[in-house]
Amino acid sequence: MLLSFLAITTIAVVRLRDLFAVVMLFGIFSLLSAAIFVTLDAVDVAFTEAAVGAGISTVLMLATLTLTTRTESPPRHGTLLPLLVVCVTGGALVYGTLDMPRFGDPQAPIHQHVAPRYLQDSPAEIGLPNVVTSVLASYRGYDTLGEVTVIFTAGAGVLMLLGAIRRRTACCDDTGKGGSAVNHNLVLRVVAKILIPFVLLFALYVQFHGDFGPGGGFQAGVIFAAAFILYTLIFGLAAARAVASPGVLRVLSALGVLLFAGVGLAGIFAGGDFLDYGVLASHPVAGQHLGILLIELGVGTTVAAVMIMIFYLFAGRTR
């Protein structure tokens, strides 16, 4: 049922020419996919989808829309060739899946190789109830470090692209305070003021409880950023910049990556391998715990700082 909704939404997205409506439907799309992830028991993925897909990406897409036009330009080429390409690719993918073991088949390679080790040994080796966090932060520490660096680089890239052409960023920040209905909206202002501390604290809760339940640095960073975005939306860019200035954010985003890598290096100095947290404390499990906590903090800091930074840039450009 959910899948059919998903398919219908996709068709509608393709057919609509009004980009705004498309963005709205994308919102529905990501809500749906999160619901599907939930039904597939992929809690952490659903969490990420919830935070990133439904909230931030909608906001960023809208911000992009304000930089471009609202309606899609009519296609310049025929639809036959792309359709053919898509069909062939899709066919190839379906053909590929024919070889794959049946869903949930215990003989499948994926269940023979690393998964059992992760599932069986992780409680003993890492000592965390949430296996996903163990895998992400410990067994696959290199990958995650790579991802964080990618986010950092992406942030730097957007910063350069949009920051280079900043014509009116600095001067016109506060013009919005005058005529905008959202800024003038008493109801929004009061409720946002009540809500924001709770959102922030909730983000930190997600940050530090990634060990026990779904959550972790990525999700926490996004939620934290969302609180700031809400603040920026309602009180204006200037106020938000005064709370967390772009300079501070830049430092923070780099600091997050450095914290992650630093924990890894600390492992070397303590006599282990890079990103081996077992040696960080007297007891391996305690060391793992400490290491994961620290790198999750690094991830969260980087994600939040980069997200807020990108949003500032977009917001600064749209005025």
Binding site: A51, V59, V182, I223, L230
Partner: peptide, 8 residues
């Protein structure tokens, strides 16, 4: 929480 923020 997020749904509200994106609506705003």
């Amino acid at each position: 929480l997020i749904n509200f923020i994106s609506t705003v």
